[in-house]
Design a protein around this nucleic acid. Structure first.
Lengths: 235, 235
DNA sequence: CGGCTCCTTGATCAAGGTCAAGACATGTGG
DNA sequence: CCACATGTCTTGACCTTGATCAAGGAGCCG
């Protein structure tokens, strides 16, 4: 684990997360340009990368660590919309549509991010149609995810949405060596994904535990019967 | 009102909805190509243009009429995600990301749509960076709308969401000569925008009416005090 | 060790969903 | 043009879900 790397030595073309990123099929020249323009930075757990409403000067590529992306609701309550992992590009939509950030990005564990200036990124998007197509596709996929979640929020009860969220977390973060979902979230954070109260999350988690579908170890969650959870969410 | 126009005579470059559409800044050559490829069709109120999950062979440009775009929830209940009006392009995300339709499109009044084959559209998107940028921006805006609505669904009560929906409808459809919102929706359809039960919509509508904020005339709604509604949803 | 933060549980309560019944409106075919 | 059937609206009664409040316990860090 690199704790606070001398980031400027990271060569984009040889980056370990390149294959997972939107930058996977650039030309050597384009990589060199990225490398020349990017600035890498370390963020401590809990640190905020940028805030909803802020003007941004570029996009970020996650090199290491995990981020949560959330909006603040009318009563100041956070609503987690999605997560970002190594290889993910964040804030590019704000740059493309010249708007201010529509979410807050915060590190949920120590992270390293590369910042790419808006101009560099926009030039790339304009000149490489494969790249811009890829961006459109990411956006479309995300729009579809959001719309599906709207239906769930409007039509499914908390218990089901929690089951869905557990499977989503499993899918997003995978498992650690002991089989636990490889992320640490507070109950409150889980509640702010599901769209419910912290206490409801706790109650339904312990119900799932009682029924043997999951195992809990403080903040760590292991899914014992993914099929049973799948069955719950299929009606 | 053209009822069943001889659509093939509609010249894209001279189209009355051109200025409102994503096609507003094409070259004459590009317009000619569109005109050569497009096929125009009339849809009766209630008719379905395409269904969620279907493979599509092109995009549609709304020439006349109003559409609702919805997903079907787990219990078969419809959830209206958005509307489309003259000038709007629909289904283009499915075409761009080569997926099947993520929503059902249905005419809520008699409509005329132009169908543009996938290839024509994709070529245009690839060759005209301004056009593809515009598409990205539409998508980003919509994604942001959806994400905002997720927060509202998760954190705001039905009464407030109904007030928001009324203002949204006003903004989307404008008013007719008598000052009523220029669209006819059943209470059930309104409920499926708000994400609630039909009866709840009816109850809160009559409460708003009792308080003098709105006026009802069968399915038509007039907003008497937009400021009061704004006040409700603010803070 | 003391002060955090976070977790957990129980009790209570309100929002809003569901059910049922009747009124009203709309459209269709005879 | 009427009569019937169907769809939509409305209201009331009831009940469930899940939010809120309160209090105690566990774990963690300086």
């Amino acid at each position: 684990m690199i704790k606070n790397p001398n980031c400027d030595n990271l060569i984009c073309e040889q980056c370990i997360v390149r294959a997972k990123s939107a930058f996977k099929n650039l030309t050597t020249l384009e990589y060199q340009n990225l490398y020349a323009q990017k600035v890498c930075k370390f963020y401590k757990r809990g640190e905020i990368i940028y805030q909803e409403g802020h003007r941004l000067r570029g996009v970020y590529c996650v090199y290491q660590g995990k981020l949560k992306l959330y909006k603040i609701g009318p009563e100041g309550k956070e609503q987690i919309i999605r997560f970002a992992l190594p290889g993910d590009l964040i804030a590019f939509r704000a740059i493309l549509s010249q708007e201010s950030a529509c979410m807050t990005a915060q590190a949920i564990e120590d992270a390293v991010l590369c910042h790419i200036p808006a101009k560099t990124f926009l030039d790339l998007a304009r000149e490489n149609p494969n790249f811009s197509m890829h961006l459109i596709q990411i956006s479309c996929k995300e729009l579809n995810e959001s719309n599906k979640f709207i239906v769930d929020l409007a039509q499914r009860p908390v218990k089901i949405r929690l089951a869905q969220t557990l499977l989503l977390l499993l899918d997003t973060f995978g498992v650690d060596k002991d089989g636990f979902i490889d992320v640490i979230l507070t109950r409150e954070e889980i509640a702010s994904i599901v769209g419910t109260a912290t206490e409801s999350v706790i109650r339904y988690l312990s119900e799932l535990k009682k029924n043997g579908l999951i195992q809990l170890n403080s903040k760590k969650i292991k899914i014992l019967k993914p099929n049973e959870l799948e069955k719950m969410i299929k009606f």
